[in-house]
Design a protein around this nucleic acid. Structure first.
Lengths: 253, 253
DNA sequence: ACAAAAGTGTTTAATTTACACCCATGT
DNA sequence: ACATGGGTGTAAATTAAACACTTTTGT
């Protein structure tokens, strides 16, 4: 029934501390969140599936950043993702919902242990990474941020908090960039900001402002096969961004 | 020798998770940090004192915010302080320095346990609170942020991170206020910002900008006994601030 | 030819910056 | 009388906001 036998691998795990990853994905139009489908023997009442963020206990010999990276990879196959810690969640009752503790009994050596979780987030182009669910994740799926399914634990709260952080940060620093694919058009970038902030932006003003910061390098390459004037691709100049950042900058869109 | 008998009180403490508090204090001129003097039997090589942030393990039945509040009170006597979580630190080696583990043996039931700490910060008027060291804190003292003594654990890193957060937040939101005493003059407020950001601000521009946000209420009361024109006191209007904040505001000094 | 998104400037309003003098009080 | 920080306004420069048409491509 369960091909994954987690309890045997619990050696070296700290029973009280986990990491959870809120991976935002952008598909060119809308903002998504990556959730895993728990392979639960006793499903919650009837047919309602309960999803969760990719997350698990940390190992005793790794730091928190390493744990987040490892756990994300183990459950979803995502690698080399820039992850940023944004908060920790430690309500004593955060794991005590009935179907959550049912599930923990399947996978944890100490299912009753109190667990504090350290949460990370990231933002990637959903279509540029392949997902490979494994471990106790039966599946790893993008869900639209506006219509999330029922979530286990306190993961709704964690996602909400991550989104708040993403909105705040992206308004005051060019956050899109540290988290962005290699090349992109300004139209895509604008849509990304519009999706994050949930507002509309003026095309001309956006382009002027974003280019003035001058850490976007225009490429010779343009879009091909699009049924409209092909847009130029840009790339993000990490060095120029760093010097801009160190100058105590701010910006507003 | 040790009036404090911590090992007997370890019941109910989670061995793997602690909280640490970075309390910034402002004395009207300079920014300080509150540190405790560890009551260490075997002092570090010779005469060098090692200080630390107020912090300790969390209890199993309290959440993180409650733990921070309790620990701060137990060690320093500070109460009703607005505390904000800003990060977690979990390097596996963060407690392994010799004099640190010496000290942990004195106070912990599981001195070897790996501990992840959740860090909080605040900002208060140093002169408006009385410090009462207790528990394993022999003393609780303000230290100038620019000349910190040797610190145990990874507390230098934690303070640096807190200061970075404080600078960032105070630049984009009126952070001074949630953390400020009841009444203050605009000159004091300006000096606070100057101390945090480590820059000079123009008096007229500062006053205009800060008053335009309109969550400062002028009081009838003025300074007395000062050898110059007495300044008007202002108070922070929490309601107006909340509505301002919810409007997705930003500001820059 | 048409649909669809790319790309491009100007005018107006709002905000930011720089800057200097008189005021009220204690000593 | 003097030293100290409080309190005030204006002009110039910068930045933000609003706004419409031409271009290039695929179908």
């Amino acid at each position: 029934m369960t091909p994954f036998t987690p309890k045997l691998t619990e050696a070296g795990l700290n029973p009280n501390v986990s990491v959870d990853c809120v991976i935002f994905g952008f598909d060119g139009e809308r903002l998504k969140v990556l959730l895993i489908d728990r392979d639960q023997v006793i499903s919650a009442k009837g047919d309602e599936k309960i999803y969760a963020l990719p997350g698990n206990l940390i190992k005793e010999d790794e730091n928190l950043d390493e744990a987040a990276e490892r756990v994300l990879f183990e459950l979803t196959g995502l690698e080399d993702i820039f992850l940023e810690q944004f908060g920790s969640f430690g309500d004593p009752k955060r794991l005590t919902k009935e179907h959550d503790s049912q599930w923990l009994k399947q996978i944890r050596a100490h299912p009753e242990a109190r667990v504090i979780t350290v949460a990370y987030y990231s933002l990637i182009r959903a279509d540029q990474y392949e997902l490979h669910a494994s471990g106790f994740a039966k599946d790893a799926i993008w869900h639209d941020i506006e219509e999330l399914p029922p979530l286990g634990f306190d993961h709704s709260e964690i996602i909400e908090s991550a989104l708040k952080e993403l909105k705040f940060k992206s308004k005051y620093q060019p956050i899109g960039f540290e988290l962005l694919p290699e090349k992109f058009t300004l139209g895509q970038l604008q849509k990304l900001y519009e999706a994050i902030l949930n507002i509309e932006l003026d095309k001309r003003n956006f382009r002027r402002k974003i280019l003035k910061m001058s850490f976007l390098t225009p490429l010779k390459e343009k879009q091909i096969g699009v049924p409209h004037k092909p847009a130029r691709y840009y790339t993000f100049d990490r060095d120029k961004y760093q010097s801009y950042k160190s100058q105590d900058f701010y910006f507003t869109l």
